[in-house]
């Protein structure tokens, strides 16, 4: 684990340096650019694109978390139980839609830019969070739920102070999965003119400049690794606080 954390720290330093002082790496990226090509992305600020990228992903994941956890809670209550099998099947079918297709279909309705990307990321984020919410809420230890019932807690009290906190680590794992997938998928949003890091990659593809492609890909990859680790740490923290440390895995 020690070597791992040094590696993460290096990744963070590299990311910050790449965003604040990209010209430091000009020599390195020049190896991948053509003789007359700029080694560092020059059609906009990398930092601004990165922040925009993170904002779109963050907003979409927040929305999908609210909706997916809400639905997961609803279909595990008696009132929504009739919807459980169908909603599970729907979430799975939704996943067979390629992201490009979702983007392309959303464009005529929402216009070019951020909106269709947001919709695609939102829809894509739903399944992992929904599945994990279901898994978390249906695999609660029966001893604990029985004890809560025996104490005379109402449905709402059980949900808010027993069920959800216990399911939180599993739900967080779903949010982590969705976020990492969305970080990559958001780059495709630039094919419909969303301001994300995909712009850098596509500029590289269009001008056959590998240095651009590498920069865009590297920043997205670093973001994904760091955010993945951040969520994992949060999951461990919640597990430890819940006293579920023994159950910690992956």
């Amino acid at each position: 684990m020690k070597v791992g954390s040094i590696f993460r720290l290096l990744a963070l330093v590299l990311l910050i340096a790449l965003l604040l002082r990209p010209e430091t790496f000009a020599g390195l990226f020049a190896l991948f650019a053509g003789p007359r090509q700029p080694p560092i992305y020059n059609q906009g600020s990398l930092l601004e694109l990165t922040l925009n990228h993170l904002a779109i992903v963050g907003a979409a994941i927040l929305a999908s978390t609210l909706v997916a956890v809400g639905l997961g809670v609803l279909v595990t209550r008696p009132i929504g139980a009739e919807f459980l099998p169908l909603s599970r099947a729907l979430a799975q079918v939704g996943q067979t839609f390629p992201p490009v297709a979702v983007l392309a279909i959303a464009v005529p309705v929402l216009g070019f830019g951020t909106a269709p990307t947001f919709v695609a990321l939102f829809l894509y984020g739903l399944l992992p969070i929904f599945e994990n919410t279901l898994a978390g809420l249906t695999n609660l230890p029966p001893k604990v739920t029985d004890a809560a019932k025996g104490m005379g807690m109402t449905g709402w009290q059980r949900l808010l102070s027993v069920d959800l906190p216990l399911a939180l680590p599993v739900i967080l794992a779903g949010v982590r999965l969705s976020t990492v997938i969305s970080l990559g998928t958001a780059t495709i949003g630039s094919t419909v003119a969303a301001r994300t890091l995909g712009e850098v990659i596509i500029a590289g593809l269009l001008s056959a400049n590998t240095a651009f492609v590498l920069q865009g890909g590297l920043i997205v990859g670093l973001l994904a690794v760091l955010i993945h680790d951040g969520f994992s740490a949060l999951e461990r923290l919640v597990l430890a606080r819940n006293g579920q440390a023994g159950a910690a895995a992956g």
Binding site: T187, I188, I202, L205, A224
Partner: peptide, 8 residues
Amino acid sequence: QTIPSIAL
């Protein structure tokens, strides 16, 4: 897996 598809 973390590298975005269009970049890869």
